[in-house]
Nucleic acid binder design. Structure first.
Lengths: 150, 150
DNA sequence: GTAGAAGCTAGAGTCGGCTCTAGATCAAGC
DNA sequence: GCTTGATCTAGAGCCGACTCTAGCTTCTAC
């Protein structure tokens, strides 16, 4: 029923180093038990928590905030509103990131479109002029708002 | 017509330190000119490139890859396909990030939903049991697939 | 002509999140 | 019993992307 650190590493995708580090950082919901000789013993539910943890991490929640959440949870009932608002704040943060990425995507696709069009028409050599020699040409036109970067 | 480093910092949102660092890292499309006394002089188009640069950075393109792109561009025409495939690879990377964030969002919203429901019904105290004392209760039920983390 | 702001260089420091090392102990299979 | 591999602790090292410092020079405004 109990899992070794190696098994947990394999199931969670985290390294054994990272698991020990997470423990030291107080990121486990429940204290990690030990065998008589000092080896760590984990539960299935630790793996489940690590899966959530990993999602929070990969969406940009810092270990410090995860610890905060864990500490609230460990205190037991009475602070559910705090935990909820922590989650809601992160939800907002994730939405912001998605919005930001979509903006980036628009820029990238715009540039991809320019290259595709130009390559089709065989005009690629006009896409980039690294010298500062033609300010007149550069100023005023706006068919490529990132001229210097096309 | 020319801009000082301070002006570029203000317009681009990057610090003067970062601008000098970017230059040292070879991230400018065109060489940064200097006054007779050694002060940097920038062009409007440098600011435009920095705007693109910032989008690439904030969508996770490393400075190393940006430099690669810049180097291709500086070489002049003939490598447009390489530049295009670099952009397309990044586009894919951004799409992956968005997909990942959406998965994270689903997890967060699931947990937010649990808290909201429980708080409404005043059942918050059952949301978290930090002890390992009730394995029987924990095993088998699946109404919260992240029990240890609710 | 002088104070204060802005710029210069080289290089050190920071931060988060691990990763890796050393040196020792422990467990499992033959 | 012995080997091999897993685990332990404490602490050092690493990476990217800046940020900051020190000590100096150069503008700008009065």
């Amino acid at each position: 029923m109990d899992l070794t650190i190696g098994e947990v590493a394999e199931r969670s995708g985290l390294s054994v180093h990272a698991l020990r580090f997470y423990e030291k950082e107080g990121l486990f919901a429940n204290p990690v038990r030990r065998t008589a000789t000092g080896r760590r013993l984990y539960h299935e539910e630790d793996v489940e928590w690590l899966a959530v943890c990993t999602k929070l991490r990969s969406s940009g929640m810092s270990l410090a905030v995860i610890r905060q959440y864990v500490e609230l949870a460990r205190q037991g009932s009475g602070n559910e509103k705090e935990r909820l608002s922590l989650l809601r704040a992160h939800e907002e943060h994730v939405l912001d990131q998605i919005r930001e990425l979509n903006e980036c995507l628009a820029v990238i696709r715009y540039k991809v479109g320019i290259y595709e069009g130009a390559l089709e028409r065989g005009e690629a050599n006009e896409l980039w002029n690294p010298s500062h020699a033609e300010p007149a040409e550069l100023a005023g036109t706006d068919e490529d708002c990132h001229r210097a970067a096309a």
